[in-house]
Amino acid sequence: MIAEENQAAPQRTTENQSVPRPILTAEHICLNYKRDKEFMPVLVDVSFTASNDQFVAITGPSGCGKSSLLRIIAGLIQPISGVCKYHDSPIKDTRREIAMIFQNFVLLPWRTAFENVMFPMTSRRDISESEAKHKCMGALSEVGLKNFENVYPGELSGGMKQRVGIARALAVEPEILLMDEPFNSLDNLTADHLRKEVYSLLINPSTSIKAVLMVSHNVEEIVELSDKVIILSPRPGRVVGEVEIDLPRPRDKKSDSFSNYEDRIYSFLS
């Protein structure tokens, strides 16, 4: 019988009380969208930082460009002006240290769960096959999907599919994890449950992940999970607020301080 583990969520490490060095910075990001020969500004002068062990949320009304911002950080698109820096070096293209989890899971339907997690590894030359296999099995186990290696995504529930997505990202051992509305496609109960696991899954001493950036429009989930919240205005998106959340984990959704934070964020959104 499996012994119960009664862990409290790991505390955020603060080695020295000085200002934490940013791992990721966005500096005066501007983005335009071209449609029918006209340029529409999508993001205007967006700046923020993410530091070691920080869970940062980016939110705003729909159309404010938060997903585009995430894609700029990922290196998928380039801003018109401004720059994103990873440890002081500008992000010009996608890189191994930055991984992503998608709203619609984006798994390969013709591959098993294990093969999906292995997928990024198959392109790499610097790692042996047995080592890759070991990492992938480990990742699947971490997300609670041990024994599901040979199941196809079509047979998995939404929550399980997202876990495979998480395992896939964990296996490549990234430093920065980007999440694009990761709980949006799940039903309420499953999303609820996954959220509780996500923080301890991602930010703990045994993973390589140093910062998480999550785009979301669910204020409750944001307060439950994040250390810092960046709030964007409606299009074109500008930073209208930055809230640091200093609540101990696990966070009590019923507490007054929790609601206060929610209210603060809502006030920026209206």
Binding site: A74, G75, T94, V106, S123
Partner: peptide
């Protein structure tokens, strides 16, 4: 094919050959 899949290939540094074969 949803655009996300092209993003997937880029983010996870999938080689062109693999992207063709697998996606």
């Amino acid at each position: 094919l949803p655009a996300d899949y092209k993003d997937l290939a880029r983010i996870f540094q999938i080689t062109s050959k693999h992207a063709w074969k697998e996606i």
